[in-house]
Amino acid sequence: MTPAITVSGLVKTFGPARALDGLDLTVNTGEVHGFLGPNGAGKSTTIRILLGLVRATSGTVRLLGGDPWADAVALHRRLAYVPGDVELWPNLTGGEVIDVLGRLRGGIDERRKRELIERFELDPRKKARTYSKGNRQKVALVSALAADVELLILDEPTSGLDPLMEAVFQQVVAEVKAAGRTVLLSSHILAQVETLADRITIVRDGRAVESGTLARLRHLTRTTIAAETASPVTGLDRLPGVHRARAGAGSVSFSVDAEHLDAAVRHLTTFGIRSLVSHPPTLEELMLRHYETEEAAA
């Protein structure tokens, strides 16, 4: 099957500012793809190009088999979008806005809309002017998730939602995925992406620095170990692949490259392990590692 989204060598400049600098991204059909990166990395810019709102300076972009700029209208029939900062018409009610946006997309599934309004605990009769930030976000979410589309493009869609609503969102996206739809989910909330995403792409400074399944990315990276031992641990620094070792009286923590994990744990056993916690790298660590490598290279 052809991928839902293929982007290669994407460049976007705003006057002198270079927002995207040769970005590559592939989103396969039917997957939830996490799109991660620090502030200003270029996530929203990429998404705005995918939506045909902004024109690429150079590079190729294919979305659902079409050109997002030239075929914008036809493509938008098959996708729905939620931005991270939702602005609504102040003198329309939330319910009106959901309908307007739904109709603009070509009609809305009434039953699904009512169900989502209930699940997100939204009062659709309030004027948009009086909604809190989270409630504005819910309006856009309901309208997008109620749409019968192949692709959902979500740009930090849960910014401002409380943890309960965040959980509802996770459920709904899981259902969407089960229904075979494709989701591009940009986020800072790493836990959200970890549970939902099949694959992720990490962007930084307008380039993709990593892409693949979480398992594969973790394999490439370090495991963090914290242990308590009977006698103080020595000689860790001399082991290959061990980083950031910190030893206290009877406790030690360090991170270790995947291929040296075995040797490191063996070394520990010689000091009498009392407890051992190991956790795979979080996405924060994935990102941090990239900063470190780049800083080291610079």
Binding site: V73, H76, L101, L104, G106
Partner: peptide, 15 residues
């Protein structure tokens, strides 16, 4: 400028 046009244009609405 308000950002509402972004929601509208992402729907089936011509440029």
């Amino acid at each position: 400028q308000s950002g509402r046009a972004e929601l509208v244009r992402a729907a089936v609405v011509g440029r």
